[in-house]
Structure formats: structure tokens, C-alpha cells
Design a protein around this nucleic acid. Structure first.
Length: 415
RNA sequence: GUGGCCAUAGUUUAACGGUAAAACUGCGGAUUGUGGAUCCGCUAUCGAGGGUUCAACUCCCUCUGGCCACC
């Protein structure tokens, strides 16, 4: 059985349904993957996730390497057993975390020296001069300091794969360098070519895996396309990553997810190049329901975003949104309410009257408002359950619509 | 009963003879391969009344309320 099977191709767009087969179960695509960085989807346990019908969760190599360490998790039999989650898991390689730390450091140092906070047209020299000593990249790998205790660590493609082998996720990611969009083309190209070399080294490391205590099940390796917002670089990166023996193709970058106009453009550039028979994964997409439609329409099968869970912890709760019902401040559709707002203090209705999640079936807006105001822990759990249910339910509707060739009709209802 | 001190945002506190700062709270906003973090706006007829002064939250008097000491 192949890793990925397309079960239906939409007649009116690139949208498709499919199944990803892993040794911990099948995943119906397109799929939204909740983020559980530190081997927990914050405030929920594995029973909550099963009740929500979560198919796969994300964990993070950078965070779990620093704490509690991959060896400890390996000694417990891997992530699945450690966190009591017997369904698929994907681990991010840690590249994004390390390099976003670097970008933050550069921005901090630039603002502290009174220079512009923008980095338009940075040369490589300037870029390297500005970069914080906390993160140093070379062709071999990247050295960085822990945000927990300041200790020095080094990631290479080989070590990132080794750590992910020990963590034991069903899907693991190549180690990549995520460049800021405002770096110049020269640096972006160098980083991209480095990412390509690292991609080959990740594949080699994954094949050879010199470890003795490896998982007995299959781990699938995904490559990541970079190239920022440059058409030529994205196309080149798509060609290189597609030519390698990856099980899936991810599209990364600072603006992927963050800037949906750029994300759509990038997808349109790489779609003619990347193989259709491998799963497509946009990293960091899913800030709002509209974003899900945009990437699914462009043939994306997998995506993850911290938005529904982080938003939940801040009291931003999603709602099914008809255009006439919810208007954002600037006339745009907002899809969500802030449960902290005083108007909900005495509101007896559920968060979303059309929602069938356990939170909406059992609790009022007034109760949620109180829990958030009092900073009670239950607030985070009830809100997270609602937001995840909202996203997962929308994905179920999208998959059903694709199977009936009605994807674009469903999209019109939402956007 | 006598003497002294105090009264500034919802709370706790600043400053100054030239129409008031901060923290927390409150009311809104931001949040994108996760720090339950963080950031950004907004919110005061300066206890009441009178006096001095070009000008009073600031100086003086009275009242009200609170605190302390003594009898």
C-alpha cells in the first residue's frame, strides 16, 4: 500500500481528497493538524483529542530536544507511548524555531542600536553582521543557545534526523533554513541552496540511521521548499525538492500562512512542478477558515497552525460565519468573537449556536466569560475544545464537498 | 476632649503655584511550522465648600471622612 492515495479529484479546482497511511492509522486529507509543540496540545489530553476526532498532531524537535530531551522520550518507547497518543504524529525539524529566534534577535539588535527595524535589501554581509551571536549558521549546520538555560546546542541535518528518529513520529521533516522575506535575493539563494544540500543529507541520514534503538514502524520524511517570495527561487526549490526521494512535499517560508496573498502566489508557482502523487503540506497555514479554503483549492493536503489553540487561550473563539452575521471592524469577515468582551457577561447562549462541540452543548458564553476573567484553568480547555472542533468540523465539511465536486460552492458560503 | 497626619483613576501610589504620572484592574485591539507569554490603544470635573492669586490638585480657612498619639 502506498503512503498516499488520492481518493477524489475535484472537477473545478486542484482540491482533492486522499488518505495518508501510517503505522499509527490512516489520515483523511485535506487535514488540519493541531499543534502540540511540547508533546501536548495545550490544555487537552489524548482522550480529549480522540473525542474531537483529531487525526494527527504536531510536535516540535527544537522544544523536545531542549526539554525533556529525545533520549528520555526514546527510553519511554517514543512520543506515542510517552504522551499516550496512539495515532499519527508529525515532528517539525526545529529549523523554523532556530531561525525565527535568529530573526527576532536581529530585529531586537537593530531596534536597540537605533537602526531601522526593517531589513529591506540586506546584503549577506549586513545580514551576518546584524545577526545575533545567539544563532550562527554555516554550511554544516546551525549553532544556537537554548532559550531555557542559555546552553549551547548544534543542529545539523544529521542530528535533526537522529533526534526525530528517537522521538519516533510517523512523519518527520527535513532540516531547513527559513529566511526572512526581506533578505536580499543573494542571501535567500544561498540559504535555499544550503537547504537543498541539507535535504539530501537528511535523506541519507534517514536511510542509513545508525541508531540501534529505532522505532519498528515506518517514519516518513518530508522535504521543504524555500525561496521566500522570489518566483525563480521557488520554482528552482520546487524542482530540487521534488527530485529527491521524499514521502511528501512541504512549502515553508516566513510568509507562508502569515501572508496569504504571498502564500497563494507561491502555491501557484510551485504547483505545476511538484508531483501530484505526494501529499502537499503548507506549514503554518490555518489562521482563519478562509485560509483553509485558499490552500485546499490549490491542492494542499495538510496544514497546521497554532491559531485555533492559541486563539482559544486568549478568548478568541471561532464561529460559523455567514456574511450577514459577523462583520469585522474593517468590513471583513471576522469568524470569531472575543469572549472576554463585557457584552457576554450575562449571555446565556453558547459560543456558537450552530456548534455541536461539548463546550457549546454544555456551557454559556457568560460562564466562559467568567472563567476567562477569573483566569480559571478550565477556560483554556473548554475554549480549545471549541476552536479545534470548529476547525476539524470545517475540514470534514470541506472533504465531503470535494467528494461531491461542490468545493467551490462551499467556499462561497464562507468567504 | 486636645494635638498631629492624610484625602489624586475602580485599587495602590507619584508629581507640581502654570489644567495631572505609573502599576494593577476595567473597556477594546493585535496574535499564523505555540512562551497559558507578550504588545498596542482608551479610562481622573485631584473628598465638599469658601478664600488668596493673572493662574490652586498644590497655599490659607471651614466642613466631612479616615488614621495616629495623648487625656
Amino acid at each position: 500500500m502506498s503512503f498516499f492515495q488520492i481518493t477524489h479529484q475535484d472537477k473545478h479546482s486542484l482540491a482533492r481528497t486522499g488518505v495518508i497511511h501510517t503505522d499509527h492509522g490512516d489520515i483523511e486529507t485535506p487535514v488540519f493538524m493541531p499543534v502540540g509543540t511540547q508533546a501536548t496540545v495545550k490544555s487537552l489530553d489524548s482522550a480529549d483529542l480522540e473525542n474531537l476526532d483529531v487525526q494527527i498532531i504536531l510536535a516540535n524537535t527544537y522544544h523536545l530536544h531542549l526539554r525533556p530531551g529525545e533520549d528520555l522520550i526514546n527510553n519511554f518507547g517514543g512520543l506515542h507511548k510517552f504522551m499516550n497518543w496512539n495515532h499519527p504524529i508529525l515532528t517539525d525539524s526545529g529549523g523554523f524555531q532556530v531561525f525565527s529566534l535568529k530573526h527576532k534577535n536581529i530585529k531586537a539588535s537593530a531596534s536597540s542600536t537605533g537602526k531601522s527595524k526593517q531589513f529591506n535589501n540586506l546584503t549577506m554581509e549586513q545580514f551576518n553582521n546584524e545577526q545575533s551571536k545567539l544563532v550562527e549558521v554555516d554550511d554544516e549546520g546551525v549553532t544556537f543557545t537554548s532559550h531555557l538555560d542559555g546552553s549551547t546546542h548544534r543542529f545539523t541535518p544529521e542530528s535533526a534526523i537522529e533526534i526525530q528518529h528517537k522521538l519516533g513520529a510517523d512523519i518527520i521533516m527535513a532540516f531547513d533554513e527559513c529566511t526572512p522575506d526581506d533578505a536580499d535575493v543573494k542571501y535567500t539563494r544561498e540559504a535555499m541552496e544550503r537547504t537543498h544540500k541539507w535535504a539530501e543529507r537528511c535523506i541519507t541520514a534517514h536511510k542509513t540511521h545508525p541508531l540501534t534503538n529505532l522505532p519498528t514502524y515506518k517514519q516518513n520524511l518530508f522535504g521543504i521548499i524555500q525561496g521566500a517570495n522570489h518566483k525563480e527561487l521557488r520554482e528552482e526549490s520546487a524542482r530540487v525538492i521534488s527530485s529527491l526521494a521524499f514521502d511528501g512535499i512541504a512549502i515553508g517560508g516566513e510568509s507562508v500562512g502569515f501572508n496569504m496573498e504571498a502564500t497563494k502566489k507561491i502555491l501557484d508557482w510551485v504547483n505545476p512542478i511538484i508531483p501530484k502523487d505526494k501529499p502537499h503540506y503548507t506549514m503554518g497555514v490555518g489562521f482563519s477558515p478562509a485560509d483553509l479554503f485558499e490552500v485546499v483549492e490549490r491542492g494542499v493536503d495538510m496544514f497546521d497552525c497554532v491559531a485555533p489553540t492559541r486563539m482559544a487561550r486568549n478568548g478568541a473563539l471561532f464561529q460559523h460565519c455567514h456574511p450577514e452575521r459577523l462583520e469585522g471592524a474593517e468590513g471583513s469577515l471576522s469568524y470569531r468573537i472575543n469572549i472576554n468582551n463585557a457584552q457576554y457577561k450575562t449571555d446565556r447562549s453558547p459560543i456558537d449556536p450552530t456548534c455541536t462541540c461539548p463546550t457549546c452543548l454544555n456551557y454559556s458564553r457568560a460562564y466562559l466569560n467568567h472563567l476567562f476573567k477569573a483566569e480559571e484553568l478550565l477556560a483554556y480547555r473548554l475554549a480549545t475544545i471549541h476552536n479545534l472542533h470548529f476547525f476539524l468540523n470545517l475540514m470534514r465539511e470541506i472533504r465531503q464537498a470535494i467528494k461531491e465536486d461542490k468545493f467551490l460552492e462551499l467556499k462561497k458560503e464562507w468567504i
